[in-house]
Design a binder for these strands. Structure first.
Lengths: 143, 143
DNA sequence: CTGCCATTTCAAGTCAACTTGAGGTCAAGC
DNA sequence: GCTTGACCTCAAGTTGACTTGAAATGGCAG
């Protein structure tokens, strides 16, 4: 079995060695052994780091991410909890969509003052106000 | 003109007074005057705070947010910069969608080990890999 | 065997975004 | 007129997520 040095993991994942050590320290990832002093990682850690990166993008703390994907890297949570997390992400997507639309609107709207533009006010008010709008629905293929 | 005390702004926006003072300090919002010692805010600040909240959800720093919506609260950036920000948000939405799909998949996939499930690996690998997939396109109504 | 260089540990530092606390002010209600 | 409660300022503290630096280690190429 070919293991990876921390430097290789860093190179392939874009995560710095210091961050990788920190992740290991807080139990977010783990190395399988040592070669001398050096941590050895299995290549699956790259997948985990991808997952972690996604979680960070979604604004979750490392603690929350650790809660989603245990140290093995795999979620071991009840179905409904996972779906709740997914729902939270969907809500976040809604807000991002509102911000994006607001930005695009502002870029293109010729009105002199946006504060008076009803479209602008409506877009901005979309945040927080849960809408029933359908967002980017895409099923996942059956495994 | 009826102005708002910091406490009222806090109550209506959900942002703590200390945070509001901090936002003013860094020039993200501004109060219009004082009533004795007390800051007075115009109600538009609530809209601004909504915008700020959206920006935070999107993972922008307060500095970046301040860059988007100047102290007047309104974006005063060139069209293309605004569209670039919007594009960045779209990319973020893509990643969030991948994470959400991954979570839902894991919740429902009966496979014993996800690491070996090709669907799982494909979903995870979606992050970082820019896809040409169309995402949640929704135009904004003309103002 | 000798260097070299990527690693190691550990403590301390940094940055953003606030929060907390102490001590002070003031307008409004009694 | 006095009290009260919501506000004020300013300095310092906190949390999360790392980074940095110093001093040590150890495998491998020459």
């Amino acid at each position: 079995m070919k293991f990876l040095d921390i430097g290789e993991v860093a190179a392939q994942s874009g995560v710095k060695p210091s961050a990788l050590r920190y992740y290991e320290e807080i139990g977010l990832i783990s190395s399988v052994s040592r070669h001398g002093l050096r941590r050895q990682f299995v290549s699956e850690v790259l997948l985990q780091l991808n997952l972690i990166a996604m979680g960070k993008t979604a604004g979750f703390s490392l603690d929350e991410i650790a809660g989603m994907f245990g140290r093995n890297g795999m979620p071991d949570l009840p179905r409904d909890v996972l779906h709740a997390k997914a729902d939270a992400i969907d809500r976040k997507i809604l807000e991002l969509s509102a911000l994006r639309d607001t930005l695009r609107h502002v870029a293109d709207c010729p009105a002199p003052s946006h504060m008076e533009c009803p479209t602008f006010r409506r877009l901005v008010s979309l945040a927080g106000t849960p809408r029933k709008t359908k967002v980017f629905k895409r099923g996942f293929p059956s495994s």
